[in-house]
């Protein structure tokens, strides 16, 4: 019985955590955070423009 409660609590916590990440951050942002932890940095380039052809 105790094991069932423990597993149930863990599954519930996991589901709530996944839902929280999805709703408040989005998986793209989480992926970015993980990539930064792993030392990968995106190359960035700022490009200027005037809204005219």
């Amino acid at each position: 019985m105790k094991l069932k409660v423990l597993i149930g609590a863990l599954v519930w916590t996991l589901l709530v955590s996944v839902a929280h990440v999805h709703l408040n951050y989005g998986f793209d942002q989480v992926r970015e955070i993980v990539r930064e932890w792993l030392g990968y940095k995106r190359k960035t380039l700022e490009v200027g423009f005037i809204p005219v052809t």
Binding site: R42, K43, E46, G48, I50, P51
Partner: peptide, 18 residues
Amino acid sequence: GSVFASRKFSEFATIKES
């Protein structure tokens, strides 16, 4: 995975200086 960010200007003099 590269990020290209656009930066809007309203006249060319400021772009030139940048």
